[in-house]
């Protein structure tokens, strides 16, 4: 059970983010929620790649006596997470520029009032 707590934290982060997107009314809060979901998924990938007692997969001045591959954490999830982080910042920047524009046009950040497009 105790070994699964990091995974539970991942689920908690994803659900907190989803809760923000669905139930908070401020646009910037919604963007923060999406950022939290993204962090949760990143944490998930890194946790998947961890191996007990492993060191980072970098050979430069490796601690002596390290056996590899068993003594190293998995490199692929780290690469995927790196990609995911950059994607996150790109999406965030675009969303927040849209939010700034929307505020100028609508004069509000309340998602309930930003609904000229309906039905």
């Amino acid at each position: 059970m105790i070994e699964y707590i990091p995974f539970i934290a991942v689920v908690a982060m994803i659900i907190i983010g989803l809760y923000t997107v669905v139930f908070r009314r401020n646009l910037i809060k919604i963007v923060i929620g999406i950022s939290i979901i993204e962090s949760g998924v990143n944490l998930f990938l890194i946790i998947l790649g961890y191996r007990d007692g492993g060191v980072a997969p970098i050979f430069t001045s490796l601690p002596p006596g390290t056996s590899f591959p068993e003594g190293m954490v998995l490199p692929v999830p780290q690469a995927l997470t790196l990609t995911s982080i950059v994607i996150g910042v790109a999406v965030l920047a675009l969303m927040l520029s849209l939010v700034m524009h929307i505020y100028r046009k609508y004069g509000t950040l309340d998602v309930q009032k930003i609904r000229r497009l309906k039905e």
């Binding site: 669905v22 009314r25 998602v111 497009l117 039905e119």
Partner: peptide, 14 residues
Amino acid sequence: MHTGNTSDYILWFV
């Protein structure tokens, strides 16, 4: 059903 609210779109997804 078609409220036009962004949060509702995600609520439908969930």
